[in-house]
Simulated scan of single mutants.
Amino acid sequence: MPQSAAPGKVMKRRKAEIIEAAAECFMERGYHATTVDDVAARLGATKGRVYHHYATKTDLFFDVHREGMQRLFNAQEEAKAVEGNARDRLIAMLHAHAVAMLEHHTYETVVAQGVQVHRFDQVTPDQRQTMQELISSRDEFETLFKTVLSDAIAEGSVPPVDVSVAVKVMLGGLQWSIFWYRPKKGETPGQRSELASRMVAPLVAGFGTA
């Protein structure tokens, strides 16, 4: 059993390495300027290694985007279960999102590039389907925040606001960190958490005290 499982683990690890290298290239150069040769060079391998797993650069970009979104969803698991009222959960979720944006800066920069870079590109039917799935994933992520903000308004811990607009503004404000934040050598998780708190504070200040 272990022997038969080993090849699968190796394959998974190699694919993860390709995704990591691609994320770095897409972040630095953007989707259109990045080539499969760039990704292969970052890996120190031939482009045949990349093509072994991905038929096109677009398919690779989609997997980087998918991984970035999964990391954002993963970051919300504990925050959604925070004890307290809905306002407390909202603040915890915003903080978790801010931390994830900082910790996964490379991937989230690619997510921010978004599937819109392909809206006017020639894509296959399968790729178009994947585009729709990624768009749905982003909508689902927004819904997490819309739900808890609606709950907070219903319980009276947050004043009435346009939920859809408010969530887009809050998430957009945190997402903007991809333009001004750069990971620092030796930066600790505690320092990132403290920065995340400062990012979230002005977003919830308008809600007043609970």
Rank of each mutant, 00 (worst) to 15 (best):
V200W: 03
V123Y: 00
A166C: 14
E142C: 10
S197V: 05
E28Y: 01
G44S: 06
H32T: 12
K184M: 09
E155C: 15
F61D: 01
D38R: 02
A154Q: 11
I18N: 02
V110I: 08
M93R: 01
V169A: 13
T46S: 15
A152R: 00
I178P: 01
E140H: 13
A40I: 03
V36H: 00
I135T: 11
A98L: 06
A92D: 04
E103I: 04
V64D: 03
P159E: 05
K184A: 12
T143C: 01
Q76N: 02
E108A: 00
G186R: 03
S137C: 03
T35F: 10
V148Q: 02
W180N: 12
F145T: 07
E142K: 12
K15V: 11
A205H: 13
F207W: 15
V161W: 05
I178L: 09
G8Y: 10
E28Q: 13
M101E: 11
V115Y: 01
G30E: 02
V64Q: 03
D162E: 13
G156F: 13
H97A: 13
D63V: 05
V10W: 10
R192G: 01
A33M: 10
S137V: 00
A55L: 12
M11N: 08
K12D: 15
R87E: 03
F179Q: 12
E108I: 08
E133I: 05
G172I: 04
F26I: 01
W180S: 15
H65E: 12
R119H: 07
V169F: 11
I91Q: 08
A205D: 12
R13I: 11
G208P: 11
M170T: 03
Q3Y: 06
